[in-house]
Nucleic acid binder design. Structure first.
Lengths: 220, 220
DNA sequence: AATCCGAAAACGGTATACCATTCATGACTC
DNA sequence: GAGTCATGAATGGTATACCGTTTTCGGATT
């Protein structure tokens, strides 16, 4: 028998997860100092696991170190988001092409995700399931490093999307159905098209996603 | 006045560099255990910087951790190299397209690299300068994350190429002139072609590079 | 009021120590 | 001889302590 994988046994992991959540939820504002001792005291662990957690978060792009080794919550500019967008546009079509055969043989995980999306109760949940859908395709590509690279930008994407949501509370776009049906169409196409077309479809899907996003006015 | 950047002030950095070199030079064989205490004793530092160095090397793909936290020198299979090749094919054309305007305005760094390549005295030096040439393009793309992703696979590439070299000592291909002139042509083309063509040219350059490589017979 | 400066507090880098777990070795059993 | 189990060494995770550097802040100076 095993423990559920969510509750990590090591304090370094649970510390990085707690900090990640605080950053993604906006509790820790961009630019905030994450001092090792302070975090350690606050979370009731020693500095060692905190230190390790900060390195992890740096790898995930949520934290950056100053020249003197201090860790700060990273600031994300619209220009940063553009970079992330270009990377999705670069990585995901390749994954789509590679994953096409796998998806044709078994798309159950993707379909399950779509069903869950239709039952989502909050906008945040839709966003999470959306990213999970795309990560599933990366996994099905069978390209371990491609998946690793994609994961290395996932947290930054989540941070940006979370901020967007908090800024546009009022809007009641039906993102849920939009996302679900868009993903559904993508799978249908994947099942009937050759890999090269799957690349193009993946690309178009990202472009569409980008256009739906409510963007801020400030360019830079 | 500053210290030369090569000698890093922190022991964690110098430790990771020493280990990186040992792995790339084949002193540490794939599969070898890198026990924290043993490395610490051998290098005359405590376990703390060693631990940090091992995390760094894991990020760079030279080391992998077992489920119980032990660090081993990563095994690289031909299939792993295929993944790396696909990633170059994915990332570098995008960088080429983005870097085109910058290169047109100032290609001096690239030209300098080519000149150095022509003066290289060992095959290993040619390889290093080759990778540096491509990294320069990534830098000139102005896309910080694209560069970061490329760097995250650079060490693995170096490891593979180093192993190839050691396996094919006898061959006396004139890689030096081949590399230099190929890079020269690429720059010339970059200067006269639109960004979309630069993407294609970058892609072709990588494909050519791949075909020149002496590959092993074993597929898996 | 603005600037400079020095002392104290905060902070990061590293070493050492402790403990639970894992791993390797050899004896023992069948 | 193959498999099993116990024991001790090796190993990683974490806490704590020390030290040099950086940062902060209040007071002196202009």
């Amino acid at each position: 028998m095993k423990m559920e994988p969510s509750s990590s046994s090591s304090r370094a992991d649970s510390t990085s997860e707690k900090l990640r959540r605080e950053i993604l939820d906006g509790l820790a504002a961009p630019g905030d100092l994450l001092a090792e001792s302070a975090v350690a005291r606050r979370l009731g662990v020693s500095r060692v696991p905190v230190r390790e957690a900060l390195f992890t978060l740096e790898r995930d792009g949520l934290v950056e170190f100053s020249g003197t080794g201090r860790a700060y919550v990273k600031e994300l500019s619209p220009r940063d988001f553009e970079e992330l967008y270009v990377l999705r546009l670069t990585l995901e079509p390749v994954a789509g092409g590679l994953a096409a055969p796998t998806i044709r043989s078994d798309a159950s995980a993707l379909l399950k995700n779509i069903a869950a999306t239709r039952k989502a109760r909050t906008l945040g949940e839709v966003t999470r399931l959306d990213l999970e859908f795309h990560e599933l395709i990366l996994e099905m590509s069978g390209h371990a490093r491609l998946l690793k690279l994609w994961r290395s930008i996932r947290s930054e994407l989540e941070m940006w999307l979370g901020r967007l949501q908090r800024q546009h509370r009022g809007q009641k776009l039906d993102t849920r159905e939009q996302t679900a049906s868009s993903h559904e169409k993508l799978i249908q196409a994947f099942r009937s098209q050759p890999p090269s077309a799957c690349e193009r479809l993946s690309r178009d899907h990202i472009i569409n996603w980008r256009e739906w996003l409510p963007m801020q006015q400030g360019q830079k």
